[in-house]
Computed example of a mutant assay.
Amino acid sequence: MRISLAGLVHSRAVHDGRFGCRVLHPGREARFSTSEGDARQPPIPSLPPLAGPEVVAPANAKLSEALDHAFAEAESGPRRFTKAVVVLHRGRVVGERYAAGITPATPLIGWSMTKSVTNALLGILVRQGKLDMQKPAPIAEWSAAPEDPRRVITPDQLLRMVSGIRCGQSLQTGFTTLFDADTQMEFDMADQSAFAGNARLRAAPGTEWRYTNCNFVLLSRLIRDAAGGDAKSARSFIERELFAPLGFEHATLEYDSAGAPLGTIHLWASARDWARFGLLYLQDGVTESGQRLLPEGWVDYSARLTPLSADEYGYGAGFWTQRGNSAAARQRIAAGFPADSFMAIGSQGQYTIVIPSHDLVIVKLGWAYTPHDDHVAVERLVRETIAALARSG
């Protein structure tokens, strides 16, 4: 596919089989899928499907009303364009709904929910003894000079968005973000991690919280390098160690032209796949078959509040969290989120919400243009789902 902007800027993208879609850059046109079998053969899930091919009807009338509200549109906009909602209670689907043209098998973009999947891949490396989150991150650009102040940055600081690197911001979107460094990296850089690795510091590591995709691009490079150093070994690792054990059936993670997985905003998966991902965290990093994927304590580490985010956001380590005493968490709790809950969030209203106290995972996906990623509708969905399931026992 080719596009241009006013005839001045041109871009070309290709579909590269199981590596997804990628913007091509001069000198970086190589495909990673080298054969038809490599392009089409999906990983074999190790778990049976969450449910049959048909849509699971809500367990009761109140849950059906909650799903009605999640799909409801205001007469005059802005519109939320909800695509899918899945409710997983006690390990089984108790209700789901899809927009026209969407099915339980339709891959949907997670945007920044992908960052939470990167959290899982880092946890797997920690469990395997291949990564220490508290030691300096092995970033080549930071190791060249002994006096480089970036040498002390840890994977934990990257994951918690407190690295201090000067690399734009990825939390708000608008006209001005067209000129942001993060946007330049996403759309104009063949090797995104090299761009992020060459960013200087804007604050001492560990002293400022700033949400930037550059942190997760660098974490994605660590995953690629630990898996073998190229796109094929990274894809094999991700599918073998995470997607197949979780029973993912319809997931594709995309890659940049340097072969690094784009663990920032580029995972496509069905709503049921996202629900299974939430279930992994609900079950303390253990799959339904009893296989431990994440180290003991990793889920609590992930949901633990990063203090520097407490004033406005309530961010943990790759997840947003109601735990701790952040202003944002207090507001969400007042709106109906249980205090032990945490969630993966993506732009335009992508949510995978984990609620241990109710043995519950709620997934909501769409293309919302409502304010603040449709959070008011999601708060209502959480409140009404908990109440509906309490009524049914």
Rank of each mutant, 00 (worst) to 15 (best):
P53T: 10
A105G: 11
M113I: 15
H89P: 00
A72P: 09
I102P: 03
V94C: 01
S64V: 00
L47F: 07
R97C: 03
Q41C: 10
L108F: 02
V93H: 07
I109A: 13
M113T: 13
R40E: 14
K62E: 15
R40H: 13
E75F: 05
T103A: 11
A100I: 00
E96Y: 08
P78D: 11
I102K: 02
A100R: 12
K115D: 12
L88S: 07
A59Y: 02
P42D: 01
K115A: 13
T103R: 12
A105E: 15
S46R: 10
N60S: 11
L47M: 14
A105N: 10
F71L: 08
D68H: 09
A84V: 00
S112N: 14
G77N: 08
L47I: 09
A70Y: 02
G101L: 04
R90L: 00
E36A: 15
T34G: 14
R97S: 05
W111A: 05
A51H: 12
S116C: 10
T106A: 06
T82C: 12
F71M: 07
A51L: 11
R80W: 00
I44H: 09
R92Q: 14
F71V: 09
E96P: 04
I44F: 01
T106Q: 03
A57F: 01
G101K: 06
R80V: 09
A61M: 07
A99W: 01
T103S: 14
S76Y: 10
L63H: 02
A72E: 14
P104Q: 05
P49C: 12
G77V: 06
A100C: 00
T82S: 10
T114F: 06
A59R: 11
G91W: 05
V87Y: 01
G95F: 02
A72M: 10
H89I: 00
W111G: 00
D38K: 05
H69V: 07
Y98S: 06
H89K: 03
A99F: 01
E65G: 08
L108S: 04
V93D: 06
A61D: 15
R90N: 09
Q41S: 14
S116F: 04
R79T: 07
W111Y: 15
A51Y: 10
E73I: 04
L63T: 00
P104E: 04
R90Y: 00
S116N: 10
A66R: 02
E96Q: 09
A66L: 04
F81C: 04
A70G: 11
G110Q: 03
A70R: 07
P58G: 08
S64G: 13
V94P: 03
P78G: 11
R92Y: 03
M113V: 15
L108I: 12
V93N: 08
P45F: 01
A72G: 09
M113Q: 13
F81M: 09
Q41T: 15
D68V: 05
R80G: 13
V85I: 02
G91T: 06
V86T: 08
P43R: 01
G37R: 15
P49W: 05
P58I: 05
A105C: 05
H69C: 04
A105T: 14
A61L: 12
V55A: 15
